[in-house]
């Protein structure tokens, strides 16, 4: 697959069909990849594609100056692209999405937890198996055991968004909302405690916001000075407000790629907030993000018959 991708990318660049191909190349640490901005046909040789490609590339599209670009797109990139097109953030004809089949990606957090946070010195994929080694130890197991939970029950985007659709995509099966089902048993006290702990851990580096392909407001509400919506303190309530407002702002737009949780340097994972809003959008308003570039926005639109049983 990688060979095919490189060849396609090199051809697109050589023919001048696009000025840039956005993909991944091998990173500097074990099992890491890093975004590649390929501008010359020769650069395409560095493209790689495997389950260690864990960063969502679509977020870069908005800042590219090139007129026409090719995006190496898994379902995550493609769903984000649907939303970007839907919101007129990207002109549809500027982006050729090269669709790739995806069976999920490795979660570095799941891997670290499986290895009890031992230091990984080497890591490689051999087919379906992951081989990792450190000081005096080596382990080998199917990489799917450390697949990102976000990949479970992946939704394929609208095929219409691809320029070159993936030949065969068999995303991991399962119920996307299973995580919420498990949470539905938690008491409100437990949920508050959980959220408070996450907020205390959060260092407000905004890696989640920056890694999100759809968190691309010209000015984030956190940066407002007049009125300042967040205070100058390190009180956990500031982080709580940030994460709640971010979740509201992504309601109906979040494509559940999990980039936010993977980007967090201190292990905060609040994807269930986004997922809860996605489920409410689907069940109550029949809205599914990342599918239809012509869909009306979830927040900001309405149907006269929207239920209002909660209103006094």
């Amino acid at each position: 697959m990688t060979a095919n991708l490189r060849e396609t990318a090199a051809r697109l660049l050589a023919e001048g069909t696009v000025q840039l191909v956005l993909g991944w190349e091998r990173g500097t640490s074990p099992l890491r990849t890093t975004p590649l901005f390929a501008r010359a046909p020769g650069d395409a040789e560095r493209l790689v594609y495997d389950p260690t490609c864990d960063h969502n590339l679509s977020g870069y599209l908005g800042r590219l100056k090139e007129g026409r670009v090719a995006l190496v797109a898994r379902p995550c990139e493609a769903r984000a692209l649907v939303e970007q097109v839907r919101e007129n953030r990207i002109a549809r004809d500027r982006v050729l999405a090269i669709g790739l089949p995806c069976s999920g990606m490795i979660s570095r957090r799941a891997l670290a937890s499986r290895l009890a946070d031992r230091v990984i010195r080497e890591g490689r994929l051999a087919g379906d198996r992951l081989v990792v080694a450190g000081d005096g130890w080596q382990e080998e197991f199917p990489w799917a055991e450390v697949r990102d939970p976000a990949c479970q029950g992946c939704r394929l985007p609208d095929p219409g968004i691809y320029w070159l659709a993936p030949e065969a995509s068999a995303p991991p099966e399962g119920d996307r909302f299973a995580r919420l089902e498990a949470r539905s048993l938690l008491s409100p006290e437990r949920r508050r405690e959980e959220f408070r702990q996450a907020a205390e851990r959060c260092i407000s580096c905004y890696a989640c916001r920056q890694a999100c392909p759809l968190c691309d407001c010209a000015e984030c509400f956190t940066d407002r000075a007049a009125p300042a919506l967040l205070g100058p303190t390190a009180d956990p309530s500031e982080a709580m407000l940030f994460h709640l407002v971010r979740a509201m702002h992504l309601a109906g737009r979040c494509v559940d790629c999990g980039a936010c949780a993977r980007a967090c340097p201190v292990g905060v994972d609040l994807r269930h907030l986004h997922l809860a809003l996605e489920r409410e959008g689907a069940e109550r308003f029949d809205h599914r993000p990342g599918v239809d570039p012509a869909a009306r926005p979830l927040v900001g639109s309405f149907r006269p018959e929207d239920r209002e049983e909660f209103i006094l």
């Binding site: 975004p35 901005f37 407000s204 580096c205 916001r209 205070g231 100058p232 340097p265």
Partner: peptide, 27 residues
């Protein structure tokens, strides 16, 4: 070109042991 991949978050600066820039604010 150097900054192209950088997302513009503050993870590197906030977790850097020598980065020490601060802002002041009133409340």
């Amino acid at each position: 070109r150097l900054h192209e991949r950088c997302l513009g978050c503050a993870a590197c600066t906030y977790l850097c042991p020598t980065c020490h820039c601060f802002d002041v604010g009133d409340e």
